[in-house]
Design a protein around this nucleic acid. Structure first.
Length: 975
DNA sequence: ATAGGGTTAG
């Protein structure tokens, strides 16, 4: 594990960063103390100041701010010129419009100091500047104090809407009427836009309808704003209706109307409708070009905005290559890509982890934009709705660098962005915070949050969800939950992503009940399960043994109309494979392909895992080749799966061969690979060989983990004494193992398993004496001890520990009960196992499948089949699905009682669920039912019959061929 | 006063 990276962010967070020398404050300007100015004849002062004003306007227009401020200083301090009111207005307006808004209030006071009288226009510019600076209070103050017109009010409405306060903005309409200024289409459209931006499109429409009834003229801008509003919330049919209505009402759609619709269709992936609209524009253009065709649609030509919508959507939905070829075509047709086009492409590269190409696009942009002189005009084009091109571009770049794993460079990029004078908005901060969280730098993330706060930027649900994710990934759930509290304080409501993140985290640390509470809360708040949350819940429920509930949820969600995606399919397949329901899993695979979803690397890994599990290594290998042929890159999971399977089958030579193949793919064994191999060798008792592998592993800089610790100690324990176990434990710590609660639980568990109870107790006391940080006896520790005792069959000692635990006030949890029920079950102590089973069920815990299997087996093996059947029904009732072993156990039990009918019924049910009886079950069946002297023969028939069925399922599922008809039980009947 | 690019979970 890498040590936490030093904080490079905010090495000096509060240093003023600016390349500009701000206006005003004359004392800092050496020129200002001169009483004698450069000589300008009095008759020419008007001409000169007018010239300066024009120069300043020009500089501002092309964002050469330092030149503009220098020219202003020169005019005022060097030449002592005082422009007339018109001149001051031009400067004020220029600064305000160019984006260098912070200077407007300063200029305004200087204007007053110079004896010029402000009028409505002056104040409107100032109000506008206040609004842009987020100083709504100052804007409203001014509005109260000075002469106003409709523009002043419209500006304030705009400012309020921009800050999200649409309700108070709407309130100004009545004040406008009262004051006799009246409102106009500007007021209306601004408010409509304000509502739309918050997603309140219905409210926007209602307001507009009302104002139109009150006499406001419906115009193209109002229609466009509403159309765009509907597009943005994905309600394309309503947007389209409005578009048609607009034509009917005699308002001609313009290119913006078309662009809104096109972008909307692109975003929902309806490219054919988007393209049809593009064709409409082109044919309308042809009509206008031809002398006779005049359809009223002037200036209807696609522009770079139209094309960028397509390019961007292609990037996100069709893939980078498609986007790039569209981009090339656009350029070839003479459209000049602008900053948005470039940023989209750059983003596409980074999202596809193409660092070199992404950076190259950025350099190209820099080059084009920085080519000064005449490129000044180009820079102006790069201004998009008043946002300097750099902010989003830099955000894309920074985010991209984080995504490709260049966290240091990403942080540098953030500093650069500050250095060039950009002020980050909440999205930039969110991207930064997310990046820091992803590299685990939570301190940096918290600092960035504070910094953002100080700069007056408010985080949104995405910002905080990123932080939550950061904590969740570190297992710091308490901190994650605290963030939710912080969000609620700020009226930022967790959304489905926030809930998904936290639910996932809670399941992963085993706090299942809290996870389910969160899920409940989410549903109560009216949030709907999506593909992500479905997957999180299915995985979580599966993990805690509530497979029945998982399946129920899955089916409910499908019923509700959610279309299952690739990940959902893969998870379900994996779940079914793990439960041995091979054919059901393959059916899902079939369904997935029928729905046009191609299996990806993960799905292939699931197939390969299943093949391995069934011992079909050759087929697994052919899947590996197939993956490569399809251009997919096998990953660590692919190889680790095969390695694990070969380890289990004790085919260590083949396993090492796979390791070599993995290396030939440029993939090096990771911690999972090593744990698997070490585990495999340990199972074989090859402790020395395992240690050799561990030495290789540490040479690669990997530390042993708790899995390795467990396996090594277990292997070492066989036939040895407690001291040698402790020696191995110490040795692993020397190799870099970090001793935590898990590790001590392992140690205690193993000592108990091998009956070294007193040694275990002394280790425990030792830990307590040494005061291991964060190590305290919890239910997990007790479960570890109980599990060890249980495995060793020492149930008397287990009962004593259980009593001690309860005296200390620790309540047994689901894990404890599963351990104890199984423990008593395994030694045939039916009285206690059933007593504890009843107790756990009464407390609402659901026994795991394994626990049921042990219980059923305990009754079944002594012929108590009525009780076994009762337990089997109980598990059904509680939503626990049987696996292959459950059926094997029952069939063997009934076979011993020669109950042909039960055996037939169970075989049929087993088959329906996609299971096949194992070898020993087949043995039991033939022993019970075959004619004397025919047992071996019958066993062979049965065996080949079930093997054939298994392979047919494969063929049926994987290669989609029809299974040839056979009578299910012909072999059985033939007995 | 209206259109295209950037931030979150399996």
């Amino acid at each position: 594990m890498k040590p936490p990276k030093p904080l490079t962010l905010f090495r000096n967070p509060f240093k003023p960063i600016s390349t500009l020398s701000p206006l005003s404050s004359s004392s800092s300007n050496p020129q200002s103390n001169h009483t004698q100015h450069a000589h300008i004849p009095l008759s020419k002062t008007h001409l000169y100041s007018s010239f300066f004003c024009t120069l300043i306007e020009a500089y501002l227009a092309c964002r050469r701010f330092s030149d503009a401020t220098r020219a202003f200083s020169s005019m005022r301090r060097l030449h002592g010129l005082n422009p007339d009111t018109d001149g001051w207005h031009r400067i004020l307006y220029g600064f305000n419009a160019s984006g260098y808004v912070s200077q407007v209030p300063i200029l305004y006071s200087e204007m007053l100091n110079c004896g010029r009288t402000p009028n409505v226009f002056t104040h409107n510019v100032l109000i506008h500047a206040f609004c842009k600076l987020g100083l709504i209070g100052d804007a409203l103050d001014l509005l109260r104090r000075v002469e106003t017109d409709v523009v002043s009010y419209n500006t304030v409405i705009w400012g309020l809407c921009r800050g999200g306060s649409v309700e108070s903005a709407t309130g100004f309409l009545s004040e406008m009427l009262k004051r006799g200024v009246g409102f106009d289409a500007f007021s209306c459209n601004t408010l409509v836009h304000g509502f739309c931006r918050k997603g309140l499109v219905n409210e926007a429409q209602a307001l507009r309808d009302m104002l139109v009834r009150g006499g406001v003229e419906p115009d193209v801008i109002g229609f466009n704003t509403l159309i765009d509003g509907y597009c943005k919330i994905g309600r394309m049919s309503v947007a389209r209706d409005l578009f048609e209505r607009m034509r009917r009402e005699g308002v001609s759609p313009d290119i913006i109307s078309y662009n809104c619709l096109i972008d909307g269709y692109c975003k929902v992936g309806d490219f054919s409708r988007a393209e049809a609209l593009m064709d409409d524009i082109l044919s309308a253009k042809l009509d206008t070009d031809s002398p006779e065709g005049e359809n009223g649609c002037l200036n209807l030509e696609p522009n770079i905005v139209t094309h960028t919508s397509f390019i961007s959507a292609y990037c996100n939905q069709k893939g980078l290559d498609e986007a790039l070829s569209l981009y090339e075509e656009t350029v070839k047709n003479g459209f000049l890509p602008d900053v948005v086009t470039y940023s989209s492409i750059m983003n596409g590269f980074f999202k596809n982890l193409k660092l070199v190409e992404g950076t190259a696009v950025f350099r190209e942009m820099e080059k084009t934009a920085g080519r000064s002189v005449e490129s000044a005009m180009f820079m102006k084009d790069m201004l998009v709705r008043g946002i300097p091109f750099d902010l989003i571009t830099y955000t894309v770049l920074m985010d991209g660098l984080f995504k490709v794993g260049k966290a240091d460079e990403a942080e540098d990029m953030f500093e650069t962005l500050l250095r060039v004078g950009l002020s980050p908005n909440h999205i930039t901060y969110s991207a930064l915070i997310n990046g820091l969280c992803k590299v685990g730098n939570m301190k940096g993330a918290e600092l960035a949050l504070l910094y953002m706060d100080e700069k007056g930027r408010e985080g949104n649900v995405i910002t905080y969800s990123s932080v939550i994710n950061g904590y969740v990934k570190k297992g710091m759930l308490t901190e994650a939950i605290d963030v939710i509290g912080k969000m609620k304080e700020r009226d930022i409501f967790p959304n489905v992503v926030t809930y998904g993140t936290i639910i996932d985290g809670l399941f992963k640390v085993g706090r299942d009940n809290l996870a389910l509470d969160m899920y409940k809360e989410m549903v109560e708040r009216g949030l709907e399960v999506n593909n992500y949350v479905l997957d999180i819940l299915v995985n979580g429920l599966r993990k805690i043994g509530k497979m029945g509930e998982a399946e129920g949820l899955f089916n409910d969600t499908v019923q509700r109309g959610l279309s299952i995606d690739q990940v959902n399919y893969t998870t379900i397949m994996d779940g079914l494979f793990k439960r041995g329901k091979t054919s059901a899993a393959l059916k899902v695979g079939h369904e997935m392909m029928e729905n046009g979803i191609q299996p990806d690397v993960v799905a292939y890994n699931v197939f390969i895992k299943c093949l391995c599990k069934l011992g079909k290594f050759d087929e697994a290998l052919s899947f590996l080749s197939e993956m490569k042929a399809l251009g997919m890159t096998p990953d660590h999971a692919t190889f680790n799966t095969m390695i694990a399977a070969l380890c289990k089958k004790v085919k260590m030579d083949a396993m090492f061969k796979i390791c070599d193949e993995m290396k030939s793919h440029g993939l090096y064994p990771n911690l999972i690979t090593y744990s698997t191999i070490v585990g495999g060798l340990c199972e074989e008792g090859e402790v020395d060989k395992a240690m050799e592998v561990l030495n290789e592993m540490t040479a690669f800089g990997l530390r042993p983990n708790s899995i390795i610790h467990k396996k090594m100690l277990h292997a070492q324990a066989r036939g040895k004494n407690a001291d040698s176990i402790l020696q191995m434990h110490e040795h692993l710590i020397e190799m870099g193992l970090i001793p935590d609660l898990d590790i001590y639980n392992n140690l205690v568990h193993i000592l108990c398993t091998f009956g070294m109870i007193s040694k275990a107790t002394s280790v425990l006391n030792d830990i307590l004496k040494r005061g291991m940080p964060r190590v305290c006896l919890d239910i997990t520790t007790y479960n570890a001890i109980l599990s060890g005792l249980s495995e060793a069959g020492l149930m008397k000692e287990a009962n004593e520990i259980m009593n001690e635990m309860q005296e200390k006030g620790l309540d047994p949890n689901a894990v404890t009960y599963n351990i104890l029920v199984s423990g008593h079950g395994k030694i045939g102590n039916k009285k206690d196992s059933i007593r504890l089973y009843c107790e756990m069920v009464r407390k609402g815990f659901i026994p795991m499948l394994g626990t049921y299997n042990i219980l059923i087996n305990d009754f079944s093996k002594v012929g108590m089949m009525i009780q076994a059947r009762e337990l089997f029904n109980e598990m059904h009732k509680r939503g626990v699905s049987p696996n292959s072993s459950t059926y094997d156990i029952l069939i063997r039990g009934w076979s011993k009682l020669s109950n042909r009918a039960e055996v037939q019924r169970l075989l049929k049910e087993m088959d329906k669920n996609g299971f096949v009886p194992c070898g020993s079950t087949i043995g039991c069946i033939s022993n019970a039912f075959a004619r004397p002297g025919q047992r071996g023969h019958t066993r062979r028939i049965l065996k080949s019959f079930y093997e054939r069925k298994e392979s047919e399922r494969f063929l049926h599922g994987l290669f989609l061929i029809d299974t040839f008809p056979y009578t299910d039980y012909e072999a059985f009947q033939a007995l």
